[in-house]
Structure formats: C-alpha cells, structure tokens
C-alpha cells in the first residue's frame, strides 16, 4: 500500500496558501482596481437578485421553490464559485496551459496540482462574489425558517463540495485544454456552468440532473447543500458527502493521468 506523505501534503498546502495570500495582498494594494472589481461582482449578484425577483413577480416561479429559497440557492452558487475562483479559474488554467506560463512553475519541487492551485486563481471578482453571495444568502435565510442543525449540515456539505471542486476544476481545465486548443474554451464552459448553477437541478430533467451530478458535478457545489439546508434530508446529506469525496478522488486520478501528457507549450 502506498504511504501517505503527510508532511509533503502540509508543505504543499502551505505553498498554495502563501501564494494565494500574496495574490490577495497584491490585489488589495491597487485600491481603485479593488473597488472596481468589487463593484463588478456585486452588480452581477444584484442582477441575479433582480432577475429572480422579476420572475417571481410575473409568475408563480420555479415549481417547488419559493422566492427566498431560490435566492438562497443562487447565493450559494455565487459564494461557492467565488471561493473556488480564489484558487482556480477554468479560464486561467486553459489559457495558462496554452501560453506556457506553467512551464517555469512546473520545474518547482511541488506537485503540479499544487502549482495550478497556487497560480490559477482569479481574485478579481471572487471577493465581490463571496461578499455579494453572503449578503443575498443572509437576506434569504432571514425569511426562511432554518434550523441550526440544517445550517450546520449545509456548511459541512459546502466545505466538502469546495474541496472536491478544488481538484475537479484543475482536472476539467486540463481536459478542456487537450480537447479544444483555444484560450476561450475555459471561459465559455465557465460561463455556461455559472449560468446553469443559478437554478435548481430539477428544471434540467433527469438527464440534466445526471449531467450536473456526474459529468460536470456542479450539483454537489450548490444544489445538494441547499437541499439539505431547506429540507434537512439525511439521505441527501450522505449522498452529497460521498459524492464530493468520489469527485475529489476520481478527479485527482484523472488529473495525474492528463497532466503526465503535458509536454509544455512548446510541444
């Protein structure tokens, strides 16, 4: 059985956190840009809120979801993507692989996954998304009767989904790089995923639910945690934890297989 190098893992985590901390500090130094990007993300969150409000103003809305439940769901998606993008953005992974920007970093004595997580974040809009998402979430749950245990279960699933996606996103980025050699592919897929994750999985039908739970498992990031928050289902809780762990493990295996084939942007 392969031995787990805990010290090595701690060293990697330290390196990733140090790089992201430095990026955050660097980002915050340019105050004008910082405020502008904060505004960009918060405007995006406001438009999501406005769209949901208009939908519920002119119709009975999405079946099975009341107005505040929908706000909580969309806020979860916004916060989740904000947290993930601090470490890894699909757009950054595909464009940096294409431009050869990792070639230098891959010579460092860290794992390639660690290097991608340390160097592929998109801090610009992530802070605003997290803040805007928290505001919208707080507003929504003030109007919902949420038990503390459900909120606790939600936070646990959110954390599991987050760690699963920290491995899934780099793997998806590398897979997209091989599939379509274009710097726009990461941006395009991210746009569609971001848009799809604003609404409940139920609207996509059974095949859509399978797609967003197995192939592009964004459901574990926002949908199942919100389900547990609103309906306290122990089965969904268990399924979501197992799902997130499986996503993490399978993605890690696939990532290692795919990245071994990377020979640098030069060929």
């Amino acid at each position: 059985m392969q031995e787990v190098d805990f010290l090595g893992i701690l060293d990697e985590i330290g390196y990733v956190l140090l790089c992201r901390r430095y990026s955050l500090k660097e980002y915050a130094v340019y105050r004008g840009q910082f405020i502008l990007w904060l505004a960009v993300a918060i405007i995006g969150v406001f438009f999501t809120y406005a769209s949901i409000s208009i939908i519920y103003g002119i119709s009975s809305g999405i079946p099975g979801w009341n107005y505040y439940q929908m706000l909580a769901l969309s806020a979860t998606s916004t916060m989740f993507l904000g947290f993930v993008e601090i470490f890894v953005s699909l757009n950054m992974v595909t464009s940096q692989l294409l431009n050869g920007l990792y070639d230098f970093y891959f010579t460092m004595p860290y794992s390639k996954l660690g290097i991608i997580l340390a160097r592929s974040g998109n801090i610009n809009t992530s802070i605003g998304s997290i803040l805007g998402g928290i505001l919208m979430f707080a507003y929504a749950i003030m109007h919902l009767n949420i038990a503390i245990s459900s909120l606790f279960g939600y936070l646990i699933l959110f954390a599991f989904g987050f760690f699963g996606f920290l491995i899934f996103y780099p793997m998806l980025g590398v897979a997209l790089y091989y599939a379509v050699k274009s710097r726009d592919i990461g941006w395009a897929v991210n746009n569609v995923l971001r848009s799809a994750s604003t609404y409940p999985l139920g609207i996509y039908g059974f095949s859509g639910q399978l797609l967003f739970s197995l192939l592009l498992p964004i459901g574990f990031a926002y949908y199942y945690p919100t389900e547990v928050l609103l309906h306290s289902s122990p089965y969904v809780f268990l399924f979501s934890i197992v799902g997130s762990v499986v996503i993490g493990l399978v993605s890690y295996r696939l990532f290692n297989v795919l990245i071994k084939k990377y020979t640098g942007a030069g060929g």
């Binding site: 939908i55 119709s59 999405i62 848009s195 609404y199 996509y204 039908g205």
Partner: peptide, 14 residues
C-alpha cells in the same frame, strides 16, 4: 439553453 429550461419550468408550473 439554461434560460429555456428555466422558462419551460415556469410555464409548466403556471
């Protein structure tokens, strides 16, 4: 396409 799914659900519910 996402908006199509959203509005399909809304029309079906209403």
């Amino acid at each position: 396409l996402v908006m199509v799914f959203v509005w399909t659900a809304i029309y079906a519910a209403s």
